[in-house]
Design a protein around this nucleic acid. Structure first.
Length: 633
RNA sequence: GGUGAGGUAGCUCAGCUGGCUAGAGCGCCGGUCUCAUAAGCCGGAGGUCGGGAGUUCAAGUCUCCCCCUCACUACCA
């Protein structure tokens, strides 16, 4: 990976049916990190993101708002772009599937595939889910109608459709998946392989039921049809480079893509359909497709109805975009689902960033000024601290190959932090304050130099994750982060002598959560089904005996007849409200299948229904006398 | 139902082809230094390594059975 001359990577293009959420931010931030790293290394890098804007869902969403699809798409697309700009995402191109060049490119590709004989016309009939933009197999339907994925009703559609001969490429795809192993993480690869092995059906790739999409190439002359959104969308990776335009030089330069980063939900499209399309038009396949997981919040799935969706902008505003970036990349192994909680985020900022990194910088700023007027020199580091230095170099040596290119950012960062640990330990081990007392000034100076160099390494390798923060660190240490410096660090070249700058703490302690607690509108979650209700057996009972439980303020011991062979003993907390004698002979409502419990050492085999408010407690009783044991429904 | 992954310290997880007293980070407890953002450093807490059986001189690490979780997929309701 490190030997490529160019590096082309992409995020998915985001569907404009929704405003950006943490998942979009996560994907994009990973991609941005890889892109920045690649550039820092001196590789000619092209980083693409954008928005996916066609399809029936968009058409309908726009109509609801009284807008044209284009107006609506413009609006949402702009939100993505704004967010990425705010997040300093270093994309080289932001593509929109409504761009004219893209549309031309899709038409060109369609025509190519058509000419090759990979596309044929037929009919498609089936249940179609507008929301998911896909047909649902009859067997999958819930209640013969509802979409199993989103739960919304499907529509029966019979329409003329063009089909892509996906089945033709089954073996080739399988071979590619198995031999090239393009999918990260590998556990996902198995899923895709299984999917392909079970047989690929030809894919319906046009629709006639709506208009908001790319028209078929005019050569085919079939104006009823628009191109299926997924075909349309996937080709963005090529059209963004100018495929289908007069100038295809970027395609030549950057294709094939080195990396498509996707969410696990759309892996199949990228790992099966996309390669098949590419094979059909005779293009090379992407090198890697990396599928990441979802984010949950405080352990719960995020959803609009729960009102616990994380707005990435809110987090960034409260905690800083770079801290947020660090958190997301450090917190979760690539591919796994991650959990967002403010506590976890704060812990990362305070511990990792504040204590380990920021504070280490402060430690040497303090010492440098206390002992040497701020001067720092690398002069005697090799002489006194060769071990520490080589340990750190050892870590740097292969984190890139082992972790970064494999998207293992959490490991990458973990490794990097070991360097900070070496630094923090070294200070405690060699105790510069004692060195100074003992007149070993050179050794103290070298120690500060060592730490400065360790910090420089970390800053350079962390630059892709936290561009601004690391630039500040570099500035403090009298250097600039660039490719030259990157290479110098790798060659073991130490920092020039410099005067360290005094700066305020980079990561002030966060004492309490900073995000506004929005009123979470929760759907009532305690709705139960009728079946669940009937699990509770309620019966009318008559109180036969009643007596006080001594030593208890609240309890009465009752013998209740539920029309069973024997009386039930029920311990009820109603002593403050009812006297035993006024209960005997009256009817009550009893939960009869409650698990027996011991109260004050006595068995209680049921529970009385009662209502309690400020004015006291009242038993619930049948309005008219009923036979004992009558079930209550 | 099929396929795959996984069940290891309070939490999140490492533990490759079987082998010294089962590890890391966070959290917690104790100790300690003072350059520093009450940060750092050191030490500890002692987890039947999901359960059971087996192979072996030796098993989280291999075999078999069972239980549970998750993912993908199928199908019956």
């Amino acid at each position: 990976m490190s030997d490529c001359k160019t590096y082309y990577l992409t995020t998915p293009i985001y569907y404009v049916n929704d405003v950006p959420h943490i998942g979009h931010a996560y994907t994009t931030i990973i991609a941005d990190t890889i892109a920045r790293y690649s550039r820092l290394k001196g590789i000619d890098t092209f980083f693409l993101t954008g928005t996916d804007e066609h399809g029936q869902k968009i058409e309908e969403a726009a109509r609801k708002r009284g807008k044209t699809p284009k107006e609506y798409a413009d609006e949402i697309s702009a939100k993505f772009k704004e967010l990425w700009d705010e997040f300093e995402i270093s994309y080289d191109k932001f593509i929109r599937t409504t761009d004219l060049e893209h549309i031309k490119g899709v038409q060109k590709a369609f025509l190519e595939m058509y000419k090759k004989g990979d596309i044929y016309k037929d009919y498609y009939e089936g249940h179609y889910c507008v929301s998911c933009e896909s047909f649902v197999a009859p067997s999958q339907l819930v209640n013969d109608e509802l979409c199993p994925d989103c739960g919304k009703p499907t529509r029966i559609i019979k329409e003329e459709s063009y089909f892509f001969k996906l089945s033709k490429y089954q073996d080739a795809i399988l071979k590619w998946l198995k031999e090239k192993k393009p999918i990260l993480p590998e556990s996902r690869a198995n899923e895709v392989i299984r999917f392909v092995e079970e047989g690929l059906k030809d894919l319906s790739i046009t629709r006639t039921s709506f208009e908001w999409g790319v028209k078929l190439p005019k050569e085919i002359n079939d104006p009823k049809h628009v191109v299926y959104v997924w075909l349309d969308a996937l080709f963005n990776y090529l059209t963004a480079l100018g495929y289908g335009s007069e100038d295809e030089s970027l395609v030549k330069k950057y294709w094939p893509a080195k990396l498509h980063i996707v969410g696990k939900d759309i892996l199949k499209f990228h790992a099966v359909y996309w390669p098949a399309f590419l094979m059909s038009i005779g293009y090379e396949l992407p090198k890697k497709i990396a599928a990441h997981g979802w984010w949950t919040r405080d352990g719960e799935k995020m959803s609009k109805s729960k009102g616990n969706v994380i707005n990435p902008k809110e987090v960034a505003d409260a905690y800083g975009i770079e801290n947020f970036r660090y958190f997301m990349l450090r917190e979760v192994p690539f591919g796994a689902d991650g959990d967002f909680s403010e506590k976890a985020l704060i812990d990362r900022i305070n511990n990792d960033l504040g204590n380990d990194l920021g504070n280490l910088l402060n430690r040497i700023i303090g010492m440098a000024y206390k002992y040497f007027d701020g001067k720092v020199s690398s002069r005697d580091i090799e002489k006194y601290y060769a071990n520490e230095l080589s340990e750190a170099r050892e870590i740097i040596k292969d984190i890139e190959e082992k972790y970064l290119w494999k998207m293992q950012t959490h490991k990458y960062l973990e490794e990097l932090w070991k360097i900070l640990s070496i630094g923090n330990k070294a200070i405690d081990t060699y105790k510069p304050w004692e060195l100074m007392k003992n007149g070993e000034e050179d050794k103290a100076m070298a120690l500060i130099g060592l730490i400065a160099n360790l910090l420089a390494m970390v800053a350079v390798y962390l630059h892709a994750v936290m561009p601004k923060t690391t630039s500040t660190i570099a500035d403090t240490l009298g250097f600039e982060i660039n490719t030259e410096r990157f290479n110098a660090i790798n060659e073991g070249i130490l920092l020039n002598d410099f005067v360290i700058k005094k700066i305020p703490p980079l990561f002030p302690k966060i004492e309490k959560p900073l995000m506004k607690k929005e009123e979470v509108k929760k759907e009532p979650e305690n709705i139960i089904t009728i079946d669940e209700f009937f699990k509770v057996e309620l019966k009318v009972g008559e109180v036969i005996e009643a007596e006080e439980v001594k030593k208890s303020k609240k309890l009465l011991k009752l013998q209740v007849d539920l029309g069973e062979e024997r009386l039930r003993q029920i311990i009820a907390g109603i002593k403050e409200y009812y006297k035993p004698e006024e209960l005997v002979g009256t009817q009550v409502c009893v939960v009869s299948n409650l698990k027996p419990a011991k109260l004050m050492g006595m068995m209680s085999e049921g529970m009385l229904l009662a209502a309690k408010d400020d004015s006291g407690l009242s038993l619930i009783r049948p309005e008219k006398k009923k036979k004992t044991g009558t079930p209550i429904k």
